[in-house]
């Protein structure tokens, strides 16, 4: 019973979702005046996700609570994490809401710059990754390196200085545009079609109850 009920529920919900995507009467069906079944179901999904947030909260508290209790290495960071997590939540919940000055200030002055800082690490990591990866070992790696150089130069002003887009073949920019718009676009689309087929087969396996790992099993 513990396994059958979720399997049946999965199948029914898949059919329901399928119906909402395909059938107009289902999409616009009203359970009472102005209240659509589709909107109720979509709100219930939203509600479920919000409740799921508490599981994350409990896990973080448990993991870092244990780290503090056992004085594991770097436990002081766990203290800081719990202070920030609960502090920011309390600030948003009980002190003026999400539009309050302190709440928005923390977002603008702390979270956004931190987010940008992490994203900017990519600039550094792409350099070290490119340094390691672009070694001329065979013909394929030569092709990859030459194309990478053309695309890089075609993307920036420096490429325009070196080989202008007004010149033969449209310069680095013209070549870059061709690489992006022709071989790249074709291969991206081919991979995209493959990914869709793979994912659709995966959906069918779950909908038909052939794959049950979402119930926590390993087979």
């Amino acid at each position: 019973m513990k396994r059958e009920v979720p399997l049946v529920l999965t199948f029914v919900m898949t059919l329901l979702r399928f119906g909402f995507e395909m059938l107009n009467p289902m999409l616009t069906y009203e359970i009472s005046e102005g209240v659509r079944l589709f909107s109720r179901i979509s709100f219930s999904v939203t509600f479920m996700y919000c409740m799921g947030l508490f599981m994350g909260l409990i896990n973080l508290t448990r993991v870092h609570g244990n780290t503090i209790r056992r004085r594991r290495e770097h436990w002081i960071y766990s203290v800081w994490l719990l202070i920030v997590m609960y502090g920011y939540a309390i600030l948003g919940l009980f002190f003026g809401g999400m539009e309050s000055k302190p709440f928005t200030w923390i977002y603008d002055a702390v979270i956004v710059p931190l987010d940008s800082t992490m994203f900017s690490l990519l600039a550094f990591f792409i350099a070290s990754a490119a340094y390691r990866a672009f070694r001329i070992r065979n013909v394929e790696s030569v092709i990859m390196m030459v194309v990478a150089f053309i695309v890089m130069l075609g993307n920036v002003s420096l490429g325009e200085v070196l080989w202008s887009s007004e010149a033969f073949l449209g310069g680095f920019k013209g070549l870059k545009d061709w690489f992006l718009a022709t071989p790249n676009a074709a291969s991206q689309r081919a991979i995209g079609i493959g990914v869709f087929l793979g994912s659709y087969a995966a959906i069918l396996r779950v909908a038909l109850g052939l794959e049950k790992r979402y119930l926590g099993g390993i087979d």
Binding site: A123, A127, A130, Y131, F149, M152, L153, V156, L158
Partner: peptide, 9 residues
């Protein structure tokens, strides 16, 4: 930044 990556390669 791009120039440095190319130099590194």
């Amino acid at each position: 930044g791009h120039l440095w990556i190319m130099a590194l390669v």
